[in-house]
Structure formats: C-alpha cells, structure tokens
Design a protein around this nucleic acid. Structure first.
Length: 109
DNA sequence: AGCATGACGAACA
DNA sequence: GTGTTCGCCATGC
C-alpha cells in the first residue's frame, strides 16, 4: 500500500461529507462506491482512519443504527458522546430515529 | 495454500 | 420479530 489505496481514500472522502448531526452506514458507503458487498472493507478502512484527525468516524454506524465501532475509539464512550454532542440521541448503543437521521450518499450526492 | 477473524449485510428458519 | 447462517473481501497466522 503506497500511502492510500483509492478505495480507502474514497471511503474517507464520503465520510468527510456526512453532515453534522447526520449518520451513515457502512453498506451505504460501500454501495455508493460501487461495491455493495464490501461493507466489511468500509469498516476496515474506518479502522485505519484513526491515523487521520478529520474523519468523523462516529457518524458511521451499521444498518441498524448500532454503534458497533464504539470500542475502536480512544474511549469506548467517545463515539456516543460525539454523536450526542451533535444532537443525536443514543439509546442502548443505538441511534434513536436512525431512519430520519440517516444520510444516504446515493441520494444526497 | 488453508483456516480464522472482522467497525457488515442480507437471506433464511 | 428474533436467532442463525452464509457471502464478501482483505489481513494475519
């Protein structure tokens, strides 16, 4: 990997475009990039996003709105705090009104 | 080369 | 509506 693979860069690019107070899913990003079946690779890309400080990874959850990646943050509760700070309510590690706050790059972009 | 794992998702029972 | 299984694709052992 010479610096960044195009796939990773594309993932970060999309994540950066997620508006404040909105959330997106791994599958939606993968679908937007043309690889609907590569949602796991999106998660893998996010795992490497810790090296960058401009990736709002907390706005990416799974298709159920669950904060599956919370344990990968500096602090397990950081993800929830960041979301609540943006006005997003979290209950039992799940985004309340996920269907309303969901931001689909296929539609919005 | 084969097997296990993972920040997922869809299909199936 | 809940629990289980399979498919994807890259990484690590």
């Amino acid at each position: 990997m010479s610096g960044n693979s195009d796939f990773f860069s594309d993932v970060y690019d999309v994540v950066r475009l997620i508006p404040t107070g909105r959330v997106c899913s791994y599958g939606a990003i993968a679908n937007y990039l043309g690889s609907k079946r590569s949602s796991r690779m999106v998660g893998w890309a996010m795992n490497a996003s810790h090296k960058f400080d401009d990736i709002p990874a907390h706005r990416v959850v799974n298709r159920n709105g669950m904060l599956t990646g919370k344990h990968h943050f500096q602090q397990p509760n950081l993800m929830q705090e960041l979301l609540e700070k943006e006005g997003i309510a979290i209950r039992e590690d799940i985004v309340v009104d996920f269907n309303i706050l969901f931001w689909d790059p296929l539609v919005e972009l």
